[in-house]
Computed example of a mutant assay.
Amino acid sequence: MSNTKRSTVVTDDGARLTVYTDGSSRAGVTVILSHGFLMTADAWRIQARELSARGLRVVRYDQRAHGASAAGEAAPTVDRLGADLAAVINATAPGGPIVLAGHSMGGMAILTMASHRPELIRSRRPRVALVSTACSRAQLVPGNHPLHWAKAAARASYSYPVCWLPPAADVVRRRLPSRHPWALRPDVQHHDTVPPPSRQAIRRTRTKQIAQLWKSLRTYTTADRLHALDELADQVEILTGELDDWIPLSQTRDLAQQLPNARLHPPVLGAGHRLPSDRTGHAAVTEVLSRMAEAALRGSESESTAAAGARL
């Protein structure tokens, strides 16, 4: 995207998060997008293009240890990603209405931030889209169908070596072809203004850091800690794909039970886990975010009108 601007947000532990901004700084609403595990901000390219064309300001960023972002001194965990999101919000949209959208692990970052920083949720009152995400730990087996067990076996075949033999995994990754998504090329830098494609998400990331984050995903939960988010009521919307084989529908329903005031959309028919870029699912995500931004702008204008009337 030719008009994308690149900047850096430095966290309190020294992680340098690469941020990509589309749209005018004078836009009335900022949409902040948080991507999932082993992806980059490029996962939101369709939404960034279409929403900025509608006059909105769109902020994406590469999660720590992903894409063009550095890891920092702290171990990469889901809690840490929630703190990173708060830092991105404060740096890129310190005032004005905001819409937050998180896909998969990015949604977990929103949930974790809400559980640890309820005052931020209550003061900013964002509109929130939780896309293909969960409030409980990642599962290897998404269901009881034989195909699910086959997929679980395939995932275990690489997740266990990654978690328990990181140095050996690094040796193997250095020998993979450069275009392989697991290839390790720590000296390769990305200087473009647009985010690297998701297939290059971890080319600079040591296996130990991937293992730390995966272990955190396997133990993470925000159950019974989402009261501030639930207070936003219908400003929170939950979306998922009918064929999601990473976050099964049972976990989506569990999330909805934790947020009984949120709006749970019917699963997008024919869509899988990568809903923001899914061939059949991306339009649903874009439309929800556009509608949320319009509602946020109307709410802001109404508050400004009311405040002006009170001064007269």
Rank of each mutant, 00 (worst) to 15 (best):
D42Y: 10
W44P: 01
W44A: 00
R45I: 11
I46A: 04
E50L: 15
A53M: 00
A53K: 05
G55R: 00
R57T: 06
R57D: 04
R57G: 05
H66I: 04
A68Y: 04
A68D: 00
A71S: 15
G72W: 08
V78M: 02
D79A: 14
R80Q: 09
L81M: 13
L81H: 10
D84K: 03
L85S: 07
L85M: 11
V88Y: 03
N90C: 02
P94F: 06
G96K: 07
G96I: 02
L100G: 02
G106L: 06
G106I: 05
A109R: 03
I110A: 01
T112P: 00
R117D: 06
L120E: 13
S123K: 13
L130S: 12
S132V: 03
A134V: 06
A134F: 03
C135T: 15
V141W: 08
H145T: 09
H148W: 05
H148N: 15
W149F: 13
A152K: 12
R155N: 14
Y160R: 12
W164R: 13
P167N: 13
A168Q: 14
D170H: 14
R175L: 15
P177G: 14
R179T: 11
H180T: 09
H180Q: 10
L184K: 07
L184W: 12
P186W: 11
